[in-house]
Design a protein around this nucleic acid. Structure first.
Lengths: 121, 121
DNA sequence: ATCATAAGTGAACAAGTGTTCAGTTGTTTA
DNA sequence: TAAACAACTGAACACTTGTTCACTTATGAT
């Protein structure tokens, strides 16, 4: 990229150095940015969106979800792992069943806020 | 997938048909699910996360953002298009500059809620 | 102990994504 | 008018992701 900051020789700068520096100071660190992106990406799939919505309504076991989505349990299991890895869902074991639900209230808030945005489109 | 719903011949069902049907009735339609997933996916990239954060602080032009992220203007322009397509950012033209900002208040709420979730991890 | 079943896993492949490069458009200034 | 520049775009590529298939683990029933 070409350097557009010419403030050393000229007052007029196309890049607003003051604004850029101000934002740069507040910028979240690399690992937080990474986690944010991974979290959003975990939500960025139609199958997983349906799972999150379903789990925002009811606690469900893997085969409930599979039945609901018309998917194989294997596929559901793989997707649940993605959501689990980002702490979007939690589960409790009861015998051979695993009952899943949303991990915390932020997830529902986050999801509902996005729903509101989308429903305004 | 094997059919596990055996309620016609037996009272005991592994799939809780009542819960599944209740969720099925409330399930969002396919196009809403698709938009939700696309919106989350648009946010699911470190570069775009940084852009959204930056724009939550200040209105910025393309070259400000490029300078801030150390990216080419072409790359920034491509990423901004993704965000624009999902109405996550808007822009105003002033001469040859394009000033970008977050599209609406939902985006900031959504982003902040995710930040809170991530910072609890 | 054996069988059935809920859940989870690894490997492999098709499909989708981000970046770069080269080039275009439109505006400003000399 | 010509040159400079902000912004945008299409094509190509390397890389990532979701799904399927075959298999494993672990629990409960016969």
């Amino acid at each position: 990229m070409m350097d557009k900051t010419i403030e050393e020789t000229c007052e007029v700068t196309y890049v607003d150095r003051k604004k850029v520096l101000s934002v740069e100071r507040k910028m979240k660190d690399e690992s937080t940015v990474q986690l944010l992106a991974e979290t959003f990406r975990a939500l960025g799939d139609p199958t997983r969106v349906k799972m999150i919505f379903a789990l925002s309504q009811e606690e469900l076991c893997v085969c409930d979800i599979a039945s609901l989505l018309g998917a194989t349990e294997s596929a559901v299991s793989h997707q649940l792992r993605v959501l689990r890895n980002m702490r979007l869902v939690k589960y409790r074991k009861e015998g051979k069943m695993a009952y899943y639900s949303l991990d915390d209230v932020h997830i529902k808030n986050l999801f509902d806020e996005c729903l509101r945005h989308v429903e305004e489109m």
